[in-house]
Structure formats: C-alpha cells, structure tokens
Amino acid sequence: MAEQMKAYRQASKKGTQLERYATLDALSKVELDLYRMKEAGTVVRGEIGHDAQVTALDMTAKTPKATVSDCVDLSRYEAYDVKARKTIPLPTAQPKRYQATGTLERWKGRWMVTHIDTTRGGAC
C-alpha cells in the first residue's frame, strides 16, 4: 500500500517498487488508476488509513496463500487537480470507510498481492 500511495501521489509508478509486491492482475488495476489520474491531471494527497487483518492463511499449499481484510479509511485522503490547484471532493456516495479484500501468495520468500477487491465490502 505504501508503494501504491507513492505512485498515486505523482500519478506515475516511476520510482516505485510496485512490481516487487504486486502480480500482473493487481498491478494492472493500479496502472489503470494511474492512467486515469494522469489523463485527468490529478494526484492524491493525504493518507489512506488501513486496519488490515489476515482472515485466511494456508501455509501448507504448494504456493502459500493468504486473504487480508482491510478497513480502508479515506477521512484524510483527497484527490487534487494539479492544473486548477484545488482539491476535488470525493463523490457524495463514496463512503469514508469501507471494507476491501486482498489475496496474496508467497513467491520466492515474499508476499505478493495477486488480487484486490474493493467492490464487495460494505462499511466498516
């Protein structure tokens, strides 16, 4: 998440280590966000809060897997229009706190994010 925020602050993955922590599926979602941000001339300011907990863990599988549930907190997050030099309010329907789920696999001694789902979680 730290590398993702680093990329969102500049609307680019340049200078980040996203590939070190995210597989193609998860990385492509971040890259799509970055493309849209660059096209719109926006970056992210502030912080996204997290309260992540491992909800499933299988260390006996050939490729160990984990599921992480995260309560995402947007109360200190803001989108910023670089050209207009102003904050863009979040959509009114956007909850300030919501549940997200991540799927991870252990590859070569480190955990890799394989999938992120922010669409099915409710409020937390």
Score class of each variant (00 low, 15 high):
residue 102 G to M: 13
residue 109 G to C: 06
residue 83 K to Y: 01
residue 74 L to G: 03
residue 50 H to D: 08
residue 16 T to M: 07
residue 22 A to K: 04
residue 81 D to V: 08
residue 88 I to L: 09
residue 92 T to R: 10
residue 97 R to T: 11
residue 72 V to Y: 00
residue 59 M to L: 13
residue 2 A to D: 15
residue 109 G to P: 08
residue 8 Y to I: 02
residue 50 H to N: 10
residue 65 K to A: 10
residue 46 G to I: 07
residue 14 K to V: 12
residue 34 L to K: 00
residue 61 A to I: 03
residue 93 A to D: 12
residue 8 Y to E: 03
residue 119 T to H: 10
residue 11 A to G: 03
residue 34 L to E: 02
residue 62 K to I: 12
residue 24 L to D: 13
residue 90 L to I: 14
residue 14 K to Q: 11
residue 35 Y to M: 03
residue 59 M to G: 07
residue 13 K to C: 07
residue 22 A to C: 12
residue 56 A to V: 05
residue 84 A to M: 13
residue 50 H to Y: 12
residue 26 A to N: 10
residue 87 T to K: 01
residue 107 W to Y: 10
residue 103 T to K: 08
residue 64 P to N: 12
residue 42 T to V: 11
residue 59 M to W: 05
residue 31 E to N: 08
residue 2 A to Q: 14
residue 105 E to T: 02
residue 4 Q to Y: 06
residue 12 S to Y: 08
residue 40 A to K: 00
residue 23 T to W: 15
residue 33 D to I: 00
residue 76 R to D: 15
residue 6 K to H: 10
residue 10 Q to P: 09
residue 87 T to G: 03
residue 33 D to R: 00
residue 7 A to P: 03
residue 59 M to V: 11
residue 21 Y to P: 08
residue 117 D to W: 14
residue 93 A to I: 13
residue 2 A to S: 14
residue 28 S to A: 13
residue 70 D to K: 02
residue 22 A to I: 03
residue 6 K to F: 03
residue 50 H to W: 08
residue 115 H to M: 06
residue 44 V to N: 00
residue 79 A to Q: 12
residue 105 E to K: 01
residue 97 R to F: 12
residue 2 A to V: 14
residue 32 L to A: 01
residue 110 R to T: 14
residue 101 T to M: 05
residue 60 T to Y: 15
residue 111 W to Q: 00
residue 119 T to K: 06
residue 96 K to S: 14
residue 71 C to I: 06
residue 4 Q to H: 07
residue 110 R to L: 10
residue 5 M to K: 04
residue 118 T to Q: 09
residue 38 K to G: 00
residue 97 R to A: 09
residue 97 R to Q: 15
residue 123 A to Y: 11
residue 11 A to I: 09
residue 49 G to C: 01
residue 64 P to T: 07
residue 61 A to L: 06
residue 106 R to W: 11
residue 9 R to A: 08
residue 22 A to G: 10
residue 57 L to R: 07
residue 33 D to E: 04
residue 7 A to W: 01
residue 104 L to Y: 08
residue 81 D to R: 04
residue 62 K to C: 05
residue 78 E to V: 11
residue 114 T to D: 11
residue 114 T to V: 04
residue 94 Q to V: 09
residue 90 L to N: 05
residue 19 E to Y: 13
residue 47 E to S: 12
residue 22 A to M: 13
